[in-house]
Design a protein around this nucleic acid. Sequence first.
DNA 1: ATGTGC
Length: 476
Amino acid sequence: MDTARFIRQSANVWEIAPHGAMRVPAIIFASEALLRDMDDKVVEQISNVAMLPGIVKAAYAMPDAHWGYGFPIGGVAAFDPEEGGVVSAGGVGFDISCGVRLLRTGLREADLHGRQRALAAALFHDIPAGVGSHGALRLTPSEMDHMLTDGARWAVARGYGTPMDLLHTEEYGRMADADPHQVSEAAKQRQRDEMGTLGSGNHYLEVQKVSQILDANIAAAYGLHEDDIVISIHCGSRGLGHQIGTEFLREMVVAAPQHKIALPDRELACAPIDSALGQRYLGAMRAAINCALANRQILTDTTRTVFAKLLPAARLSVLYDVSHNTCKVEQHEIDGRKRKLYVHRKGATRAFGPDHPAIPEDLRPYGQPVLIGGSMGTASYVLAGTPQSMGLAFGSACHGAGRSMSRTQALKQFGGRHIVDELEQRGILIRSPSLRGVAEEAPDAYKDVTAVVAAADQAGLAHIVARLEPKICIKG
DNA sequence: ATGTGC
């Protein structure tokens, strides 16, 4: 990307002033090197987002941004219903409420010695992974509705985990105002036996060690110490979220003319927040958020069972669970005035600063944990929301490394077997039902996650707390 | 992301 197109606001903040049909500026958070390597499509897409009705302040792209469906992945945009603001299915993405949950184990790296292979085998055996994977559960229609209404709270009530888990989950495990009646039978059908499954693509369950502490004070408050073993679970709402996304996208394209919305790109299909269609989508999307929260809760329970068999000294506790594909109603102060906004985060993690009431009480003084999943075989990071993050991009940060190469391109260039062998030589065990999937997820098909989080940190979006390195990766 | 697709 040509950096001359931008007004450089500061070292890591780049702006395109509004022109043409843009209502607000487009802003990219990135280092100069990341921006130079960034897909031109990102500017085109956030500039299009900046044209949508009721958009507030600016359309943003995070340092890991790349080309997505309509909105870039790594995009943030907030809309005001009082100014004709819209909600967009493409602004949330197909994998509704995809997110990361981080578990502490109470184990140290030394506790894994001699057990790593057995643990990898047991996790791979018990965690359903891959395209169309099925879990042990099969939901009746009434259980499906309970799950879609109560999220992780439903899972805990059914014996999958403890109330303590909910305390450290976004929305305390239950997204309010979900409406299972707006979720089609087809979506429910697809999800019936997919609860507690990982899925495919970039989803994974990883056993990691804390390799570096970058903020000792916050790390201690988060219960993280060097050489600790932790577990990251990265997955979303499976077939249900995808089906909801597909159906509403189609409906929003058809309805756009009725709502008098001129779309700069039909992939940006959206509906006014105050329309019946907008409200129906929000009800269904929140039900999908509950599905993802319940899914990660059940996976937590399965993981606990595996650890109890192999490493009974382990005590798995949730540090935090946060989504990076959502649209949420939040209060934000704009020019001294508090406004209720519909914040779309697509491949962007919520990153609320210290003292925000949405953060669990014991973590509140330190800022919300921001969980950044790296690409397979590379590092992940834990960051914390900062006091200034609310004013920068509505309290948002990056979500991962971000692809630098398409899946097709990665398949041409890399071999799954080779990647597994190479990582094994570095002490990282990859277990996956699909070598093709492994090739698509090759570490070199992604940006450098360390550079991405450094840019997020330097821009002030979130503050780096700890670095995690993989030991075992169960790959979807 | 996805019962991976014109």
